[in-house]
Structures are given as C-alpha cells and as structure tokens.
C-alpha cells in the first residue's frame, strides 16, 4: 500500500546570500567539537537563548553579549565517558540533556542550573544500550533501549528544578526504534522510525502503540525528523542519511510523506535532493525545523532546503579554516548554527 508520487522541481541554484553571518564563537579549549545546540537560559529574571557546545569531555554554555560577542557561562566536565550528542529539551529553561557513550549511547545525563542557589549540577537520567533519544516539549525525554531480550521505550519527565518525575513506558514494537519525532500540536502523539523502515505511532499518555506503517523498500534507513497532522493525514519529514545525487531524483536527502493512519497507506508528497555538483554517496548529518532542513554533506559544505518547495535554497561551502562538521537550527528563531571540529561555531540568519 505504499504509493510514490514524486514530482521533480527544477533547481534554480542555491543562494548563498540567504544565509547571513551574524556572529562567531570559538571555544579555544575545545579539542574536538562533537555537537552544538541552543537552550533557554534564565539567571537574573531575563530569559535568553544561549548556545551549547559539546566536545568529548565537556559541555559549555555561551551567553550572547553586545556587539556579536559570546561569553562562556559555565562548563560541565564529563571525564569518564565521551559525550556523543546534545539532546535539547525544546521549551525547557536551564535544563539540557546529553548522550554519552563510545560507539553507541550508554548513558543520558541531565545538565541543570539552579537560579535559587546559583549552582550548576549534573545527574544520571538513564543508562543501558540506548538506541535513540529525543527531548520533547514540557520537559520530557523519550528513549529506546535494548537488552538482549527486549526493547524498552520510555518517556521521562523533569520538574523545573531538574528532578526526575514518574516515567511512562510505551509499548515497544518488535524492531528497534532508531529515531523519534513529536507530532506537532498533538501533545500525546509521538512517531518513531525503525530499523526495518516502519513508522510507528504511539499515544504517549496511555503508552499504546497505535499503528505501524511501512515506509517503503526503496528508501532504506529512513530517519524521522518532524511530524504533523493535517486534514486527517499524518505528514512525516524523513531524511535518508545515505543520500546520493541522482538526476531521476530517486535518492533524495529529505522527503515529506503523507500517511493515512487509519489505512496505513502512504504517499510521497515532496522530496528534496542534493544540490547539483555533489556526486557520489553522501552521508548526511542534518536537522529539520518547520519547513527548513539543513545537513552537512560529505564535501564539508552545508546545504539548506525548503521542504515545501523541495528545493535547496542555500549552500555554505567549506570554510577556509576547514570543513563544516555540524549544523543545527536554533530553538525559536531562524538562526542556523554551523560548527567546525576545532570548536568554531558560526551563527547565520536564514
């Protein structure tokens, strides 16, 4: 029941001027940057968006100052297990999670600032063989983890002060869940993508697994980034980490797929291919916010797509000092973060 209806859209050519450099920060103590993100920060009554940078052994928070400068507020040291990724909690303030591990995630920690006693803390949230993790609205965190026998999918909640509240176990599908996405404007709906290219839908409040729908064999290893419901259909933005430039558009980097949750039938709505001139198989490391997607290409450039137009709208070539390694959209703004391995982070207005 999987139908594909993909209509190629001619590329006008990406426009570099659609990305405007706002500022740059450099963590001189960083040996090898592994991730970058943003978080809300409130210390003296005013709430501002701060940048979070992670290298293998520490996570730092940066506050904007006047004249496009950044000041490091604090660094959490994490010496025992390497940091793999930052897991932002979208609307939380003074709270951010991180995933640590060697090849796979073995531990999730909460990093927290308490304005009451002006103290910075970190605490263990979960450990095990963790396959996927995502921060949800309302200070919640969902993760999938595996033991030799079974998979556990769990939603944890945090209080404003960073305390862990009761969790909710979700019914796990047989196959391993590799990524999650909140269904926008539906607080209790969550989707995930699995190793066998299925979309699963949960009711987070009851823990029920509502539906499992196959994405299609032609695009393996799909990762869900964003989901929303409209007119009775569930629209899911998927990325294909191993994209390849193709004239027939048969191997796009991002796709928007419409699912009918009642019948489990699906249809490709729009696809976004690699910009021309990036031949060969690419490993994409990307991020999606609203209708915009950004990804680092194997060439060291960053491409930005408008997912509704199916077009690449901006291309940041590799910087003179080195290739881009990371890209993330900033929470609650139209800023794109672009990071290099040496700890340099550039903020662009899109």
């Amino acid at each position: 029941h999987v139908a594909e209806q993909l209509t190629p859209v001619p590329l006008d050519g990406p426009k570099e001027e659609s990305l405007q450099l706002l500022s740059k920060l450099k963590d001189s103590s960083s040996s090898c940057a592994v991730d970058v993100s943003t978080m809300w920060w409130e210390a003296t009554g005013s709430r501002e968006l701060c940048v979070v940078t992670a290298c293998e052994s520490s996570v730092s928070i940066w506050k904007p100052l006047a004249s496009d400068c950044w000041a490091k507020i604090y660094t959490w040291e994490l010496a025992e297990i390497p940091v793999i990724q930052i897991v932002p909690l979208p609307d939380a303030c003074n709270l951010v999670c991180i995933a640590l591990g060697d090849l796979e995630i073995g531990e999730i920690r909460l990093l927290h600032y308490s304005s009451e006693n002006d103290s910075f803390k970190q605490s263990l949230v979960k450990n095990g063989n963790i396959k996927a993790v995502l921060g949800l609205k309302d200070r919640r965190l969902v993760s999938s983890s595996r033991t030799t026998q079974e998979q556990q999918v769990e939603v944890l909640s945090f209080s404003e002060t960073g305390r862990s509240k009761d969790g909710q176990t979700l019914m796990a599908p047989e196959e391993t869940v590799l990524a999650f996405a909140e269904v926008e404007w539906m607080r209790d709906a969550l989707v995930g993508t699995t190793v066998v290219n299925s979309i699963v839908v949960w009711n987070v409040k009851t823990g029920q697994l509502l539906k499992k729908m196959h994405i299609g064999y032609s695009y393996p290893a799909s990762i869900c980034h964003r989901a929303y419901s409209d007119s009775g259909l569930l629209f899911v933005v998927l990325s294909h980490p191993h994209a390849k430039e193709s004239e027939s558009c048969g191997n796009p980097a991002f796709r928007v797929v419409a699912f009918n949750p009642k019948t489990a039938r699906s249809m490709g709505v729009m696809f976004s291919s690699l910009p021309p001139g990036h031949p060969g198989r690419q490993y994409l490391e990307g991020d999606v916010k609203d209708a915009s997607a950004a990804a680092v290409l194997t060439s060291g450039a960053i491409a930005v797509w408008d997912l509704l137009l199916g077009q690449c709208t901006a291309l940041l070539p590799p910087a003179p000092e080195g290739d881009w390694a990371l890209t993330r959209w900033a929470t609650g703004s139209t800023c794109l973060l672009a990071g290099q391995r040496d700890g340099t982070v550039c903020l662009y207005r899109y």
Partner: peptide, 23 residues
C-alpha cells in the same frame, strides 16, 4: 497529493486508534 489513493480519512484518527488499540 491525491488523498483518494490513501483510503478513507478520519480527522479523529488519533482518538479512534486509541480507542481501538490494545491498552
């Protein structure tokens, strides 16, 4: 997209699937 290929659509799919799915 042509919604007719996707079968009958319900605006309340989430509530209906929650009522049908095992607890």
């Amino acid at each position: 997209c042509n919604g007719s290929d996707l079968g009958p659509i319900s605006l309340n799919w989430f509530e209906e699937l929650s009522a049908e799915a095992p607890p």
